[in-house]
């Protein structure tokens, strides 16, 4: 079963010419939706996890929008923030497509103003403040994706969660370098 998923994924990736996370994630999931129902019978649970992930991605998109629109970011940090927001939009689109494929309804995003209030964006006074907020959110997102892996009924979705976590860790690493933070002294610094 997993072999046929991989074959479908590779075929779709070849057809697209450009490998984007959204394309590959959706292709992976598209190949396993029937398996999810047949093997686990827990599609509703998986949709629930994906919807929570979607809320997290929506918040990240708003957070980068708030940061980019704050006037506090200078180039090249601003360009990096916009790129990372694009990644989160691709995550969002992949999650929405997958939730729909599994028969679920994607949750709606909160407004940027609601997110700004929840994240206390009014307290951001300089570029470092914005970077620190983004760094904190990216670390939290990576750990969230790792922490839900055992809860997925479908192992292919758990794999996607790991891939999403890897993107967030990549963001965290770049942000940490921009802040000149030291690297983690010990291994296994993310996740449980």
């Amino acid at each position: 079963m997993s072999e046929s998923i991989d074959l479908r994924r590779r075929g779709l990736m070849r057809a697209s010419g450009v490998t984007l996370l959204s394309a590959s994630a959706v292709a992976l999931l598209a190949g396993c939706e029937k398996m999810a129902v047949a093997q686990t019978g827990n599609t509703a649970g998986d949709v629930s996890i994906l919807n929570t992930a979607l809320s997290l991605e929506n918040e990240a998109i708003s957070a980068y929008q708030i940061g980019a629109g704050s006037g506090l970011l200078q180039k090249p940090v601003l360009e990096i923030a916009v790129l990372f927001q694009t990644h989160h939009k691709e995550h969002r689109d992949a999650l929405i497509a997958t939730i729909r494929k599994l028969g679920g309804t994607p949750v709606a995003a909160k407004s940027d103003a609601e997110v700004a209030q929840a994240l206390n964006a009014a307290s951001l006074k300089n570029q470092a403040d914005v970077l620190r907020l983004a760094q904190r959110l990216e670390r939290g997102a990576a750990n969230a994706y790792i922490g839900v892996i055992p809860s997925f009924g479908d192992k292919a979705l758990a794999q996607v969660s790991a891939r999403l976590a890897a993107d967030e860790v990549m963001h965290w690493t770049v942000l940490s370098q921009a802040l000149k933070d030291p690297l983690p002294a010990k291994a296994l610094s993310f996740g449980a």
């Binding site: 929570t52 809320s55 997110v115 209030q117 929840a118 994240l119 939290g140 997102a141 750990n143 969230a144």
Partner: peptide, 16 residues
């Protein structure tokens, strides 16, 4: 809490 829960939760604000 900040590293594991902070992706979705805050002490004083409803988020995810």
């Amino acid at each position: 809490y900040e590293s594991r829960c902070g992706g979705c939760h805050s002490l004083d604000a409803n988020r995810v």
